[in-house]
Structure formats: structure tokens, C-alpha cells
Design a protein around this nucleic acid. Structure first.
Lengths: 189, 189
DNA sequence: CTAATATTAGTACCAGGTAATAAAAAGGCG
DNA sequence: CGCCTTTTTATTACCTGGTACTAATATTAG
């Protein structure tokens, strides 16, 4: 005998964690047991079948990745008055923090503020030209960051936007963004 | 008759784009045609079946999300001399750019520079306290951004780090980061 | 009206499972 | 050693969400 039941189940968990794209058949081959055993083990461990795992990952992808990468805005837009003021809310999740300290990486706060500043500009396209940000207090996992962006001044295409990010009323980050509106002519997306 | 074939296929694309989690049956109900028609349409449009869509999304999640979110460093670390200098390379991908313009969103360049600055510090943990960044030239999709971070000065736990990001020799972003070492001394874990 | 095109229906098959049951193998121990 | 329990394997029926193909039926253009 190679492994005890307990050891095998531990291993199974690890293997699936490391590569969730394996079928029961493949898992069975890897652990040198039958497919039935794998299925019993999965049932006991509460690990769903491959398709369900993929479904969950895809859903996560859809929520998180979309939210982080493909979207114009990092965080959830709460209020938007073009060329005036905007607010967004970002909940710090496990994978946005530095391992060990549990403190959010600065670029997430920056991303929230930057994307909010860009969204605030009433133009088809806008680019950040300059940013000055001060991280005043660390933000921990689970905390909700409320960013408020305000247009401080505007000279033609050049906007100066002030952003304050707060957690429970306390300012955690403060930044100034210079954003340039780009006229695109056609508004083809 | 409701829709021409062409219109329906356009719509089908949209619907799947908006919600990739629909089965052919559900799609058929939504577009008021038979399942067969949906399948023919999918085949013509080269849209894979639900499971394949999920698989692709899950895979993307696995590759990209991991790469972007869970990692300490945005970009590929090329060189690292703790407390001195570090370099990383980031290739701008499709989903890092603003739609339409094809220009990389500022916070990706910021994230690359920020994470590099933090990595440069010889301490178990380090936090960004302040950042001033200037975006000098837009970066387009496909371009490779080489970031070089240098420790300019250090006073105890407080580091001032200068970062220059270049594309083909031309500086596209320039920034100064104030990073505070937490629990300083020793090597990183 | 007729021919071409579009749509629907139906069949066989597949992957990757669930669920339930039975049979075989392996321990454990007195 | 045999007996009992746990573990493992095998088997069967069924399910979803398809592919691939064929045939029949609508629909539309000329």
C-alpha cells in the first residue's frame, strides 16, 4: 500500500489546488487509485466536479478580472457628475494585499483613484499625465475604500483632479491627478 | 418574422459577450429560435460551446489573474540588487489598454513601477508612502515596458526610489516613490 | 411557381460527471 | 487462523450540454 486514506485525501486536495483542470480519471491515474475512490474522496472533501470547478473559476474571473482589468473603472461607481465629482467604492480582497502584512498594495488604491479621475472627465478618451499620491494610512483586507474625486481646475483639455480615499471616515490616501482629455472625433468604442 | 439571420447573429454575439454563462437552450429561448439554429449560428460565428467558454475563462483567470493580482511583482523581474537597483519588463496586453485608443491605462505602468520599488527594498515588508509619477508618452498595446528602479537616498526605514520606464529607449514614465521598510533589516522571506 | 436558402427536428454519440448498489480487497485483532 | 469492519473497486442507470450529421419543412427571392 502506498498511501493511507487520509494522506491520499490530503494529497488530492493539494493536487486539485495546484491544478484544478484535472478530470477524475487523470486524478485517479496520478494517485494510483480507481476513479470511484477519487469520487468518494471528492465527495468526502466537498470538492466539486471538474465542470463545477471551471464554472466557479470562470465566474470569479468574470467578477474579479473583469472588474479589475477589462473595465474602465476599478471599484464600484457610486456617483458620477461629469467634470465635477465622482465616487467609487473598492473592497480590499485577499489577493490585493501583501502577503504577511495584510496591507493593500499601493497600486490598488492608485488604480481606484486613477480610474475614477479618468472616468470623471467628460470626453471620449482621457489620459493621466501626472499623479502625486500620498498613502497616509495602510488599508487592510476586508476594508471598504471610498474614493471621492473632484475637479479642482480645468484649462481646456487639462484637468486637475483631487482624490481622497477614505476608510470609515479616515483618509487613507490623497492624490492629485493631471488628466488630459483626448478628442477622438468618432466615438467608436 | 422578428430578425434576419444577420441581425440575430449580431445579437447572439452580444448576448454571449454580455453573459457567457448561457446554454444553447437558454439562448434559443431568448432569441426565440430553435436550439439547432443557435448551434448553427455559433458554428458560423466560431463561438465555442458553453463548457469550452467556461474552460477558457477559467484558464484565463488562472494565468492572468494569478499573474496580476496574487503576485508581488507586476511584470517580469530582470534584475534585482537589493537597496540599489532593479529592473522589470511588462508587456502591455490587450486588456490593459483603454478601449478605442489602445493606450495603456496609467495604473498598469504605476503598478509595475510601484511593485518594483517595493521589491527593491531589503526588508520583509515595505509600504509605499508617497508617489509622484509623470506619464510622458502613451504606451500602446504590444509594447514592452522596461522599468528601472534606483534607490536615490535612504534615511533609516525611509527610501526614496526613482523609477524610469522606457519603451525602446524612450522614457514613457518617470516616477519617484517614497517607500517605508517595515520590520527592517534581514533579507526578504 | 420553383429553386435556393434558412430553420427545425431527430438520431447517434461523447465527456464527465451523479447516485446508488454490490462485490472484492485489505486491515485489525483476539 | 477466521471474523468483522473499513476501504476500495466495479457496475449500472441516468444527467447535462453539447458535436456531427441527416432529413424534413419553412421561408424568401427571382
Amino acid at each position: 500500500m502506498a498511501l493511507s486514506k487520509e494522506e491520499r485525501q490530503r494529497k488530492l486536495r493539494q493536487v486539485i489546488e495546484a491544478n484544478p483542470f484535472l478530470t477524475d480519471e487523470e486524478l485517479a491515474r496520478m494517485l494510483a487509485v480507481s476513479v470511484s475512490t477519487i469520487r468518494l474522496d471528492r465527495a468526502e472533501l466537498g470538492i466539486p466536479e471538474l465542470r463545477e470547478r471551471l464554472r466557479q473559476m470562470a465566474g470569479e474571473h468574470y467578477r474579479k478580472l473583469r472588474a479589475l482589468r477589462d473595465q474602465e473603472l476599478i471599484g464600484e461607481l457610486l456617483d458620477l457628475q461629469l467634470d465635477k465629482e465622482a465616487m467609487s467604492l473598492l473592497t480590499i480582497e485577499e489577493d490585493m494585499v501583501l502577503k504577511g502584512s495584510g496591507v493593500a498594495r499601493g497600486h490598488y488604491l492608485f488604480a481606484q483613484a486613477n480610474s475614477l479621475a479618468v472616468a470623471l472627465v467628460d470626453a471620449p478618451q482621457a489620459l493621466t499625465a501626472r499623479a502625486v499620491v500620498n498613502f497616509l494610512r495602510p488599508v487592510k483586507v476586508g476594508q471598504k475604500v471610498l474614493a471621492r474625486a473632484t475637479v479642482k481646475s480645468r484649462q481646456g483639455k487639462k484637468y486637475v483632479i483631487q482624490v481622497y480615499s477614505r476608510v470609515e471616515g479616515e483618509t487613507v490616501m490623497e492624490g492629485e491627478f493631471v488628466v488630459i482629455a483626448v478628442r477622438d472625433g468618432g466615438k467608436k468604442d
